[in-house]
Amino acid sequence: MKIEINGTLTEMRADTLAGLLDELGHGDAKVATALNETFVPASARGQTALAPGDRVEIVAPRQGG
């Protein structure tokens, strides 16, 4: 299915947010996620279904000064 990931339309096979993160190689990474502009906590990603046209944002924390 085609979904938008960080502003880029992408063809993915995953049907949940957790599956999407695994498919993208972010499986165990500490990232923040939002689906259609709504924050999704890590504990809910496995139950968060994806649909064609969804917009997903994945943000990794940064360090520095």
Rank of each mutant, 00 (worst) to 15 (best):
I5F: 08
I5P: 10
I5D: 07
N6E: 13
N6G: 13
G7E: 12
G7N: 10
G7W: 13
T8G: 05
T8N: 12
L9W: 11
L9H: 12
L9T: 15
L9S: 15
T10R: 13
T10M: 08
T10H: 09
T10A: 06
E11H: 04
E11C: 03
E11R: 04
M12Y: 04
M12L: 14
M12A: 11
R13M: 11
R13D: 15
R13G: 15
R13E: 15
A14M: 08
A14Q: 08
A14K: 07
D15W: 06
D15L: 10
D15R: 14
D15K: 13
D15I: 09
D15S: 11
T16H: 06
T16V: 04
T16R: 07
T16D: 04
L17F: 03
L17S: 05
L17N: 05
G19V: 09
G19Y: 08
G19P: 12
G19L: 07
G19H: 10
G19T: 10
L20H: 05
L20W: 01
L20P: 08
L21T: 02
L21Y: 06
D22Y: 12
D22G: 09
E23A: 07
E23K: 01
E23R: 03
E23T: 07
E23H: 06
L24D: 10
L24R: 14
L24M: 13
G25W: 00
G25D: 05
G25T: 06
G25F: 02
H26P: 01
G27Y: 11
G27Q: 15
G27S: 15
G27E: 15
D28W: 04
D28L: 11
D28A: 14
A29T: 09
A29L: 11
A29R: 13
A29G: 06
K30S: 13
K30G: 08
K30C: 08
K30H: 13
K30V: 10
A32V: 08
A32G: 02
T33M: 00
T33E: 00
T33A: 00
T33Y: 00
T33N: 00
T33P: 00
A34K: 02
A34L: 00
L35G: 05
L35V: 09
N36R: 09
N36H: 08
E37I: 08
E37L: 14
E37F: 12
T38K: 14
T38I: 11
T38G: 03
T38V: 13
F39D: 03
F39M: 09
F39R: 03
F39T: 06
F39Q: 04
F39N: 02
V40R: 04
V40I: 12
V40P: 05
V40K: 05
P41H: 02
P41F: 02
P41A: 05
A42I: 09
A42Y: 10
S43E: 15
S43I: 13
S43K: 14
S43A: 15
A44S: 11
A44V: 01
A44C: 07
A44E: 13
A44N: 11
R45S: 07
R45V: 10
G46K: 12
G46F: 03
G46S: 14
Q47T: 13
Q47L: 12
T48F: 05
T48Y: 02
T48I: 06
T48K: 02
A49S: 12
A49K: 10
L50Y: 00
L50W: 00
L50N: 01
A51V: 05
A51M: 08
A51D: 08
P52T: 03
P52G: 05
P52H: 00
